[in-house]
């Protein structure tokens, strides 16, 4: 099964489960969780079922495309179901069967792994899911988002589509994954990967990143003061990505890192509060 078919199959499966299929968000994010559809979707008590692909950037994880398992930009397939159905584990397992993995002939394990995103003021309880030892999904019941203790619990499923594709196609390197029409993942991404590593680790201009961070942070707060949730949230995402590049550049000490994380969380928490206030008024 090639990569694009894999993504289509997941869309198909989750469509049948009543999910809206959304598109990726157009701001750089570190994970699918940061897509507004998850951040805001998990807040409040309204039912919410969505699935989407989200390209995710983790500057620190780059290896100049020399490591077969690690990239600084890769994809997440993200599913949010609120409220979490009681048989969600079973539904999830059915999705693997749907991808053509007969589970009786394999081992699926749920390995304790609680999730936390300090920049989003978010945390959850759950597992990493292993398929014959390979981590293929993060399975999380959200408990907190934007610093707010959630009343209706969402479940978040984050598939690693590259991992699944490598498994299904029996490839040893992400770059060898067949994407479709004879193109590989490497054909499409390798040059980009190498250059971004050079930027993230060697060339990114620290002082301009620092001043961008400050400018975006200031603007986010001033927009929040004027009641704008979504543009402020975009700015929080931008700050978060800048922070990740600074971190990859080795520009931050341990204590400084904590300070930057706090500053992004402050914006995210304000966004969450304001969103809920406005939602309450709209009702």
């Amino acid at each position: 099964m090639d990569f694009q078919t894999l993504l289509h199959k997941l869309d198909e499966f989750w469509t049948k489960q009543g999910c809206l299929i959304l598109q990726p968000y157009d701001v750089e994010v570190g994970a699918g969780t940061m897509h507004p559809a998850t951040f805001f979707g998990a807040l409040g008590d309204n039912p919410w079922r969505v699935a989407y692909v989200q390209p995710s950037r983790r500057p620190q994880d780059g290896r100049y495309a020399e490591n077969p398992n690690r990239l600084q930009r890769y994809y997440q397939y993200q599913v949010i179901v609120k409220p979490a159905p009681p048989d969600i584990q079973k539904i999830y397992l059915a999705s693997l069967e749907f991808l053509g993995i007969p589970l009786k002939e394999h081992e699926v394990r749920f390995i304790e792994d609680d999730w936390e995103s300090p920049t989003l003021g978010a945390s959850g309880v759950g597992w990493e899911v292993w398929l014959d030892g390979l981590e293929i999904t993060q399975f999380t019941y959200f408990q907190q988002m934007g610093g707010i203790e959630l009343t209706t619990i969402s479940v978040e499923l984050t598939y690693g589509p590259e991992r699944l594709a490598m498994y299904l196609q029996k490839k040893d390197s992400i770059l060898d994954i067949e994407w479709g029409n004879g193109m590989t993942y490497g054909d499409l991404h390798k040059a980009m990967e190498v250059e971004h590593c050079k930027f993230n680790f060697e060339l990114a201009d620290i002082s301009s990143l620092l001043s961008l961070f400050n400018a975006f942070e200031r603007e986010a707060h001033s927009l929040l003061d004027r009641g704008l949730v979504f543009p402020s949230y975009d700015l929080a995402l931008k700050c978060s990505h800048i922070f990740n590049i600074l971190d990859a550049r080795g520009a931050l000490s341990v204590v400084e890192r904590a300070g930057f994380i706090d500053r992004v969380r402050e914006i995210a928490n304000r966004c969450a509060e304001l969103y809920l206030q406005q939602e309450a008024i709209a009702r």
Binding site: K104, H106, D132, G133, L134, D172
Partner: peptide
């Protein structure tokens, strides 16, 4: 399907 499991962990 033990052979799948063994191969998976080996990989």
């Amino acid at each position: 399907g033990m052979e799948n499991v063994v191969e998976g962990y080996e990989q």
